[in-house]
Design a protein around this nucleic acid. Structure first.
Lengths: 132, 132
DNA sequence: AGCAAAGTTGACGCGCACGTAAATGTAACG
DNA sequence: CGTTACATTTACGTGCGCGTCAACTTTGCT
C-alpha cells in the first residue's frame, strides 16, 4: 500500500520547502498534521493544502488570504451562513485573479515587444554592412 | 501646453501611492526625479517607470527584480554586452510570467469549479422540498 | 513680513514570512 | 548502551516594503 502520510522531511523533499516553513504554516493554521508521539505526519489533506498554499503564494496572496481560500476546498459541516461568507471571499479572490491574469497577459505582450526590439538592435549592431 | 512633469503630490494622486513610497523607490534607484531646488519633479519617464513598477508588484516580483526589468525599457547608449545581459534577464522573466499565467489559469478554473460546487450545495440547502 | 501648506531628510518602527541557533528529545542501528 | 541522525520547542534575527514621527526648509498666499 502506498503510504498516504508523509514525515516532515518527505514533505520538504516533495514540495521543496524547509521544516521551518511547514511548522510556520501549522502555527498559522494552514496545515494540521497529525501527531505520532511528538512528530508530525502530514496527511493527503495537508499535501493538497500545501500545494494550494504554494500556488497562492506565487500569485502574491498573503498567507492569511490563502487561509481563507483554503476553507473553500475543505468544507466539512459548515453552516449556510459560513458557507456564504466563504463563497463571497472566494468570489472576490476570483475577480482579482482574473484581472491579474489579464494584466499579466498585457505585460507579457509588452515584454515580448521590448525583447524583439532589443533583438533588432542587437542584430543591427552585428551587421554593420548597411552603413558601408 | 500640458505640463509633462509632476510634483510628488500629483504623482501620489495619479498613481495612488504615498510620498514615502516614491522617495523609497528613488532611494532604491527605481525612479530618478529631477530636482527643482530641493523638490522632486517626476518626468514622463518616471511616470512610465512607476506604472511598470506597480504592475511588476502585482505579479509578485521584488523591487530588485523590477529594477532589472526596467532597464529594458529605458536603454540609452548601452553596449552590446550589457544589452545582451539585459535581454537574457528579461527573457527569464518572460518565461516566469508565462508559466505564472498558465498556473493562474489553472487556479482560476479550479476556483470556478469549487464555487459552482458551493453554489449547488447552497441551493440544495435552501430548497428542502426534495427531502419532504 | 507672516503664516499655513507642502516638501525634505534622517531615523526608528512594524508586519510578514520565514532563517537560524540553542537546547532538548527520541527513534534506530550496531 | 552509546552514538548518530533527525525532530521538536523556544526564541531571537533578518530582509523587504514601506509607515510614522520629528525637526527643518521652502513655497505660496495674504
Amino acid at each position: 500500500m502506498t503510504e498516504t502520510t508523509l514525515t516532515i522531511r518527505q514533505m520538504c523533499d516533495a514540495f521543496d520547502v524547509t521544516p521551518r516553513t511547514l511548522r510556520f504554516y501549522e502555527a498559522k493554521e494552514l496545515l494540521f498534521p497529525i501527531r505520532q508521539g511528538t512528530r508530525r505526519l502530514f496527511t493527503k489533506r495537508d499535501q493538497a493544502r500545501l500545494k494550494l498554499i504554494l500556488r497562492g503564494k506565487r500569485f502574491g496572496f498573503s498567507l492569511e488570504e490563502i487561509r481563507q481560500l483554503l476553507d473553500l476546498y475543505h468544507i466539512g459541516d459548515s453552516q449556510a451562513t459560513q458557507l456564504r461568507k466563504t463563497h463571497e471571499v472566494a468570489t472576490m479572490h476570483l475577480g482579482e485573479m482574473i484581472s491579474q491574469r489579464d494584466d499579466l497577459n498585457k505585460a507579457i505582450d509588452d515584454l515580448k515587444d521590448q525583447l524583439s526590439w532589443v533583438e533588432k538592435i542587437l542584430a543591427d549592431m552585428e551587421q554593420p554592412q548597411a552603413a558601408q
